[in-house]
Write a protein that binds this DNA or RNA. Structure first.
Length: 403
RNA sequence: GGAGGGGUGCCCGAGUGGUCAAUGGGAGCGGACUGUAAAUCCGUCGGCGUAUGCCUACGCAGGUUCAAAUCCUGCCCCCUCCA
């Protein structure tokens, strides 16, 4: 494949490319490129947002380039300084190893991990002494550091910035020196860090890495970027049903972005699909269904995707019972004349964190037994094994009386 | 080191002695509607076995008062400016 063709394939949908000519030049040399991708060693829960750059990494891989994963265990052990999140507990060596392993497993759903190089940045930072660190910090200025978007913002809104945080871009940049990266990829929020990497590499006499960033996927709430802490994510490791349901729950106007970034569809196809919806020829529900099926299929296979789609239709369109539901165990001794207080039943199922919450659910008509709404929160209901408890639209449980 | 500002429920943010479990917004949750777990509308949103009731809560610890998120004292933390 010609370098020009590779370039096109590798950088489609990229928001930033610094610099195009440099990448082309590197590709023309014909040797495999070292492509760096940084990973947080905290409990990994990769989601579709991560999959955007990861899917591009796969393309690099398919073209014979080398992916280098950096596990930030050095930085992770210090604790995460990034903004609002409280100080995280320091991670132990075992935790980091375990997290890295889980991480690799999840990444493995997208990439061929056996072909990747995995490096822990404690390998080099552990050996660095204070003088080395000072040398590193001398290569950058405070003014330039504060240009960074989120620092500038926090400065403006009078939020604290720890000195440690100023060091982060430098540390991350030094990783590029250590692994001699040709390219580093990430979300657009990483642009600054990645660019610092270029400067640091230059300062250490290396050819600067090429920087590529892709858009941050908007979460299923339709407003914030997808992130674990905001709870608006679709995890790569989630069950087909969860994945499918969450994808169906995205606001309709998020479709364009999802189609473009998460599917292999050519731009033309995306455009046509959206036009069909726009023209009223296709129900957005159906396009979403198609998208969700395709995404689920990439992580769980065609069959699982098809099944998830049918299940969704069954439960939400036709209001039927799901094919499988968890058991709700009720101890026989908790029954009085075969009946149990409705609140207690909802709690037993784990469908409410407190009695008050359970009470609310009942009062609002969200609790049903065998499709029969129970609206009196003082009621006791007669239950037997096999009865179905439904709370809200999507929580189901099959009651099992335990002697 | 000096001067000033600030810490409120999951988040943002009102409230400056009682009428405050605490306005409002967001998120979440429930209902209606729907070929969507979409949009929209309505409701709800500390806890307690069923309560015109009780408990806990407005950075922490004390105090004043019949009564405090609101006043006083000490402490902790954050921010701004000056040095």
């Amino acid at each position: 494949m010609t370098p020009e063709k590779q370039l096109e394939l590798l950088t489609s949908d990229a928001v930033n490319m610094v610099l195009r000519e440099e990448l082309l030049e590197k590709l023309k040399r014909g040797r495999p490129l070292r492509v760096k991708y940084g990973a947080d060693p905290s409990a990994p829960d990769l989601h579709l947002g991560h999959s955007v750059p990861l899917r591009r990494l796969r393309k690099f891989q398919e073209l014979g380039h080398r992916i280098v994963f950096i596990i930030g265990d050095f930085t992770g052990r210090i604790g995460d300084p990034s903004g609002r999140s409280k100080t995280r507990p320091m991670l132990s060596e075992e935790q980091i190893r375990a997290n890295a392993k889980t991480y690799a497993e999840q990444v493995g759903k997208i990439l061929d991990v056996s072909q990747c190089e995995i490096a822990y940045n404690s390998e080099w930072f552990g050996k660095m002494d204070a003088a080395d660190l000072l040398r590193l910090t001398s290569h950058y200025t405070v003014a330039r550091m504060l240009e960074r978007d989120d620092f500038a913002k926090r400065l403006a809104e009078e939020s604290p910035i720890a000195v440690l945080e100023l060091l982060y871009p430098l540390v991350q940049g030094y990783d590029s020196v250590a692994v001699r990266a040709d390219v580093e990829v990430g979300g657009t929020d990483q642009l600054f860090n990645l660019l610092v990497g270029r400067d640091i590499m230059r300062a250490y006499g290396l050819e600067p890495q090429v920087v590529l960033t892709w858009p941050l996927l908007v979460g299923i709430d339709g407003t914030e970027k997808m992130s674990k802490s905001l709870g608006n994510y679709v995890g790569i490791a989630e069950s087909p049903g969860e994945m499918f349901g969450k994808l169906m729950s995205i606001p309709d106007d998020l479709l364009p972005q999802y189609l473009q970034l998460l599917l292999e569809w050519p731009a033309e196809k995306v455009r046509e699909a959206l036009e069909a919806v726009e023209a009223g020829q296709v129900n957005p529900r159906d396009l979403k269904d198609e998208m969700a099926r395709e995404i689920v299929a990439t992580y769980h296979g065609e069959d699982a995707a098809q099944e998830a789609s049918e299940e969704f239709r069954r439960v939400f369109s036709q209001r039927e019972l799901p094919s499988e539901m968890p058991d709700v165990e009720v101890a026989a001794e908790d029954l009085t004349n075969g009946a149990i207080w409705i609140i207690k039943l909802v709690r037993a199922a784990g469908f409410a964190p407190s009695n008050s919450e359970a009470r609310r659910l009942v009062q609002q008509g969200g609790v049903r037994i065998n499709d029969e709404p129970i609206k009196d929160d003082t009621a006791s209901v007669v239950v037997k094994t096999g009865d179905v408890l439904k709370v809200g639209r999507r929580r189901f449980g099959r009651i099992v009386i335990k002697e």
